[in-house]
Amino acid sequence: MKLVESEYEILNRILNNRIVQHSFYWTSYLFFFGYMWGTYDDNFQKSFLIEIINIPLKMIMVYFIVYHLLPRYLFQKKILHFFAYFAITILLTAIIRRYTDNYVIQEYFLVYGKLPILDPNQFIYTLLKINLVLVLPMTLKITENVFSSDRKQRLLEKEKLEAELMFLKNQTHPHFLFNTLNNLYSLVLKKSDKSLNVILKLSELLRYMLYETNASRVSIQKELNSIKSYIELEKIRYGKRVDLSFNTWGNFTVDEIAPMLIIPFIENSFKHCTSGSNGEGWITIDMSILEHSFSLKIENSIPTTTQEITDAHGIGLKNVKRRLELLYEKDHELIIEESSDSYLVNLKLNLKARG
């Protein structure tokens, strides 16, 4: 059991070694009770010999309870089984101890007369004495199990969280790439010169997604650069059909953010703005950082004559909402408002709390 945490590795190995710990416990127990019982008649040699004779039985009882009954029954929530076997073990130990008292201790060390093995007073006194040796080992074992179970539960929750985040991220990337490749495909079919710029911007995004987004946090400046590349792709795709205003304020070089959180909102704004419309739309994107507080405001038009936007709340937006809940929990605020002619997203993140 790990009881000590020291800066010295050799000291950790010695003090947390099970053999060292057990040897220290039984030695301390022997000296404490050998000395205490010896003070009654100042015959310490006799009291130490009596404790040495009794220790093997106590050790067998302690190790049987601590390393067999506790993990097999109590820790498996078999409460009734544990208390039944525990009571049997204690009673058998007490009976053996009474035989030892009568035929060894009384015979060779004490002058008092022998009492019946099951004498009520002596039997209760024996039960109390043998239970004293159990208090510390059982307390430590139960405490260790509680902390171990808690650590395992936290580890399982962490692994589950990481698996869910990885799943969401792995869904978001193919979804994003699929949409971008569709854009490139349409430009290639039209034999547009813009397709070369699309390939260039797409390569920049791919480089970011492959080499940067595996980390839990990235520089918000890198995230901003990827957003700019994505916006350039969309500007190439839509041209004058979308009137875009993109503004940033603050220092983006200090803080970090979870990767690929912002692009799905921007992607969604282009879908709202252009789906089912042959006319022009508009998008306003404002991003700012002030004292580790990140703010994003995206507002876009919605065509008055529009077909149903099948992916308005699709996989990209659903995933990013879930990632926000998992990664930023109480450190984010997301408000989405939709009216007859516009769609508004307001996102605030406390980057310092997660830094």
Results as ranks from 00 to 15, higher is better:
181 L>P: 05
329 E>S: 15
341 D>K: 10
116 P>G: 10
330 K>W: 15
294 F>E: 02
344 L>R: 10
331 D>F: 14
146 V>G: 02
110 L>S: 02
89 T>P: 00
96 I>P: 01
69 L>E: 04
258 A>R: 02
223 E>L: 00
17 N>G: 13
287 M>C: 00
218 V>R: 15
87 A>Q: 07
181 L>Y: 15
325 E>P: 11
211 Y>K: 01
4 V>G: 11
292 H>G: 00
209 M>V: 15
193 D>M: 12
355 G>I: 05
28 S>K: 07
327 L>S: 10
118 L>P: 08
217 R>T: 01
209 M>W: 14
42 D>V: 07
128 L>M: 11
243 D>G: 01
183 N>V: 07
191 K>S: 07
41 D>C: 01
208 Y>V: 08
187 L>D: 00
329 E>D: 15
204 E>W: 02
141 K>R: 09
77 K>Y: 13
82 F>V: 09
197 N>Q: 14
226 S>E: 09
92 L>C: 15
282 W>E: 02
172 T>W: 08
40 Y>D: 04
8 Y>S: 07
69 L>Y: 10
150 D>Q: 15
153 Q>T: 13
226 S>T: 12
108 Y>E: 00
106 Q>C: 14
3 L>T: 14
138 M>L: 15
196 L>Y: 14
140 L>Y: 15
19 I>E: 03
147 F>Q: 01
180 T>A: 14
2 K>C: 12
19 I>F: 06
66 V>Q: 13
338 E>I: 04
125 Y>R: 11
320 V>Q: 01
319 N>E: 03
266 I>H: 07
354 R>T: 10
303 P>M: 02
21 Q>V: 05
195 S>A: 11
42 D>W: 11
246 F>M: 00
285 I>A: 03
50 I>C: 00
112 Y>H: 14
241 R>E: 07
7 E>A: 08
105 I>N: 10
326 L>P: 08
343 Y>T: 03
141 K>Y: 07
348 K>I: 13
253 T>H: 10
88 I>E: 12
305 T>E: 09
118 L>Q: 13
188 V>W: 02
77 K>H: 13
33 F>I: 06
283 I>T: 01
42 D>L: 12
14 I>T: 08
282 W>P: 00
100 T>P: 01
256 E>N: 08
352 K>I: 05
20 V>E: 06
101 D>L: 15
270 F>H: 05
227 I>G: 05
148 S>E: 15
112 Y>I: 05
204 E>N: 04
37 W>A: 11
286 D>W: 05
256 E>F: 03
246 F>D: 01
330 K>Q: 15
23 S>P: 01
240 K>G: 05
306 T>R: 10
115 L>S: 11
203 S>Q: 05
328 Y>K: 01
213 T>D: 03
226 S>N: 13
14 I>K: 10
222 K>L: 03
143 T>Q: 10
28 S>E: 09
189 L>D: 04
216 S>V: 08
275 S>I: 07
229 S>E: 06
212 E>G: 14
84 A>N: 10
137 P>H: 13
160 K>E: 11
346 N>V: 08
208 Y>M: 12
21 Q>Y: 12
137 P>F: 08
55 I>A: 07
345 V>I: 07
206 L>E: 10
294 F>R: 01
216 S>R: 12
330 K>G: 13
355 G>V: 02
117 I>N: 03
24 F>D: 04
112 Y>F: 09
145 N>H: 07
255 D>L: 05
339 S>K: 03
267 E>P: 03
54 N>I: 05
252 F>L: 08
131 N>E: 08
83 F>M: 04
178 F>V: 08
160 K>C: 03
283 I>G: 06
